[in-house]
Amino acid sequence: MKAIDRQVDEEFVEFEPITLLIGSEVRITAGIFEEVAEPVKLPSGGEIEHSGPVLSLSTQDIQGLKKQHQVLFGGESWWVKHIGINEIGRARIYLAKGKPNEAAPSLKNWS
């Protein structure tokens, strides 16, 4: 591991382990969890609030990880929506809340 990678991990990595369920394998790893809550502006006006969390993980730790694989962190279940490109040894994993292939709860109130 390069010195800069160690420094990033020491400064920002979560204290709680992140569990990746890759097929039948259970892989425990460490990473950076980000709760994104910035609105996205549309060219025609309006905004879409993107509140999906993102994990920053070592690319070595995510070998075999694919869309729909389950991630456990913070007492919650998430599933992989998208795996970003290799950013010099790290990749951003975009998550959705819940279990893979689980029906979303019905909406009762619209705001």
Results as ranks from 00 to 15, higher is better:
53 P>D: 09
84 G>T: 07
15 F>P: 03
73 F>E: 02
56 S>W: 14
31 G>D: 06
44 S>D: 11
97 K>S: 11
61 D>F: 00
20 L>N: 08
6 R>D: 10
30 A>M: 08
16 E>G: 01
23 G>A: 08
91 A>K: 10
57 L>R: 01
35 E>N: 05
50 H>C: 01
72 L>C: 00
91 A>Y: 12
61 D>K: 05
91 A>V: 12
3 A>F: 06
48 I>K: 08
92 R>G: 01
5 D>E: 15
34 E>K: 14
73 F>L: 05
44 S>E: 14
79 W>L: 04
88 I>F: 13
18 I>A: 04
32 I>M: 11
65 L>D: 04
38 E>P: 02
76 E>N: 12
3 A>H: 04
11 E>D: 09
43 P>F: 03
75 G>L: 08
54 V>T: 15
25 E>H: 10
31 G>C: 05
107 L>P: 00
62 I>Y: 08
48 I>A: 02
107 L>S: 10
11 E>L: 15
19 T>N: 02
38 E>Y: 03
7 Q>C: 04
21 L>G: 00
40 V>H: 04
49 E>T: 05
34 E>Y: 09
69 H>P: 00
24 S>P: 09
60 Q>I: 08
41 K>R: 13
9 D>L: 14
33 F>L: 04
2 K>Y: 08
46 G>D: 03
75 G>P: 06
27 R>A: 02
88 I>W: 08
80 V>G: 01
21 L>D: 06
24 S>M: 06
95 L>G: 03
78 W>D: 06
81 K>Q: 14
21 L>K: 12
25 E>L: 12
63 Q>R: 04
110 W>C: 00
74 G>K: 01
95 L>M: 11
110 W>Q: 06
84 G>E: 03
70 Q>W: 05
